[in-house]
């Protein structure tokens, strides 16, 4: 299924994320998960092609995030929300759950994407495992996407 063509800055952001191993999400202004790359797919246990675009409620239900007490993290505390709301980068650490139920402690940095023509169109969220060994595996591309 397809909709209207995305703004160029989102197209280019997706192209960039496709080309890097650092796990990353691309999110629309309304919080819809538009795309995640293979690095992110490795961490959450499912390739994007299996999942497709998800609205905000659906992807937070599936993957979290959760706080230190394993409680769902309020959406307005997420770096993504802060980046979209405040128009500036934001960073935090929290836990996400992969498709097989395993929890991963991650650090995430969100960066707003503001296009020349379309204004604020979304955000890019780059994240990596807090565990050093796992982070090294992911960020150097020595991982496999579960299929």
């Amino acid at each position: 299924m397809s909709g209207p063509q995305k703004p160029l800055e989102l197209i280019l952001a997706r192209n960039l994320l496709t080309s890097v191993t650092t796990p990353a999400f691309l999110v629309a202004r309304d919080g819809t998960l538009l795309f995640y790359n293979e690095g992110a797919g490795a961490l959450i246990g499912r390739p994007f092609e299996d999942i497709g675009q998800l609205d905000l409620d659906e992807w937070t239900r599936r993957f979290g995030p959760f706080d230190d007490d394993d409680e769902p993290l309020p959406f307005d505390r997420l770096p993504l929300t802060r980046a979209l709301r405040e128009g500036r980068p934001a960073h935090d650490e929290f836990t996400v759950r992969s498709a097989d139920g395993v929890k991963h402690r991650i650090a995430a940095s969100a960066m707003p994407i503001v296009g020349a023509a379309s204004g604020a169109s979304g955000a890019m969220v780059i994240f990596w495992p807090v565990d050093e060994n796992q982070a090294r595996e992911v960020t150097t591309g020595r991982h496999e996407v579960a299929s």
């Binding site: 209207p4 063509q5 280019l12």
Partner: peptide, 18 residues
């Protein structure tokens, strides 16, 4: 086609499509 699989990419992600 830079960084994109033009043949298989959903059209909403193709620069210039509209």
């Amino acid at each position: 086609g830079l960084g994109a699989d033009l043949e298989n990419l959903n059209e909403e992600w193709i620069s210039g499509y509209n």
